[in-house]
Design a protein around this nucleic acid. Sequence first.
DNA 1: GTCACACTTAAGTCAGTGCTTAAGTATTCG
DNA 2: CGAATACTTAAGCACTGACTTAAGTGTGAC
Lengths: 101, 101
Amino acid sequence: MVFHALGDPTRRQIVDQLSHGPASVSELAAPLPMSLPAVVQHLRVLQDCGLVESEKVGRVRTCRVRPVTMRKAERWIEERRTEWERRLDRLDEYLAEQSDK
Amino acid sequence: MVFHALGDPTRRQIVDQLSHGPASVSELAAPLPMSLPAVVQHLRVLQDCGLVESEKVGRVRTCRVRPVTMRKAERWIEERRTEWERRLDRLDEYLAEQSDK
DNA sequence: GTCACACTTAAGTCAGTGCTTAAGTATTCG
DNA sequence: CGAATACTTAAGCACTGACTTAAGTGTGAC
């Protein structure tokens, strides 16, 4: 799941770095204080939920972000937030109507 | 952290239910296949990250969603997504320019 | 061919998470 | 007051998640 993937600070950092452009596995690993296999495991989580995609050319795997999946995650939150806000608006309307009487 | 909180399916269900209106702890627990203390623990996570707030009146605690925090989470993803998309646009522009020459 | 590079796979460790049950506290109702 | 309600706290336990190291595999450069 997308939110589970974004729940880890390392994975957010990877997404952050990838938002500035594609990168190889070792480029992504460079700034991170952990072993390369650990980074590969994080990348796997990000790919499994569709936040990141990658292709291997020769011996280097290049990763990039998938905006479609990010958009879906945004929407999930947005829908619940706006639902709540619409409810509040209806409530305000109702209260205003009542005080007019 | 917000994304960690949303990473759990039970907590997403709670947020979902709360988006339709405030609810008490036992109302939130009713549809969930687990004990009430388990639900309280989930609520604690949701409150600690600011996604939910609650107040106790008498012996019933009423919970509601905090749209401000939801908006922040949306933005985090949105910023990375748009950053990536802007990068792609600039690249397109550059390529178009090159092919004109 | 051989060496270095860029991963990849596998196995194991250890802390954190998501539950449980059992017992408590505070409030309301009769 | 006594019982029922609505949580609350605490302890324990199984499982998952985030690492590690060690040993592969496939590619490119010389």
